[in-house]
């Protein structure tokens, strides 16, 4: 005989009611990243491939347009990366200790990477 309540039996088996947010933000960041990526690649090619000096790089990133676009790019990129890799881990890693280690590493890694990149952008933009 089961003495579990019906509620205890169904709990954690259904929808967590937050999948919609994951889907929605993946799309929002994707839309934002379309123009930002094109801008980013054009800029990278201009700065790196042409062998620009640190001084030229700083001049470029201290402009308000470049700085704001870079902040948006980094923010959208790392959120999109986090959402995307999370699904890959959830789909293929079924060994729970490894799965949770990877998910925690992914979330903290994206947070640290994003903060480091955002701080660096601001530091360069305001004269480093």
């Amino acid at each position: 005989m089961r003495i579990q309540t019906p509620l205890a039996r169904v709990r954690y088996l259904g929808s967590a009611k937050e999948g919609g947010d994951h889907w929605w933000w993946q799309r929002l960041t994707a839309i934002l990243l379309v123009p930002l990526t094109l801008w980013f690649v054009a800029s990278i090619w201009w700065i790196v491939v042409s062998g620009a000096s640190h001084h030229m790089f700083q001049d470029w990133l201290s402009g308000p347009v470049a700085a704001i676009l870079m902040l948006l790019f980094v923010g959208a990129l790392f959120y999109h990366l986090k959402l995307g890799l999370q699904v890959v881990i959830e789909d293929y890693v079924h060994y729970k200790p490894l799965k949770w280690t990877l998910l925690i590493g992914l979330n903290l890694g994206c947070l640290i990477g994003a903060v480091a990149a955002l701080y660096s952008t601001v530091a360069v933009a305001f004269g480093g």
């Binding site: 640190h54 790089f57 700083q58 990133l61 870079m70 980094v74 990129l77 790392f78 990366l81 990477g113 480091a116 990149a117 701080y119 660096s120 952008t121 530091a123 360069v124 480093g128």
Partner: peptide
């Protein structure tokens, strides 16, 4: 993305 972070960090 990791390279992007390194690039910006070294620039800063």
């Amino acid at each position: 993305a990791a390279m992007l972070v390194c690039w910006l960090l070294t620039a800063a």
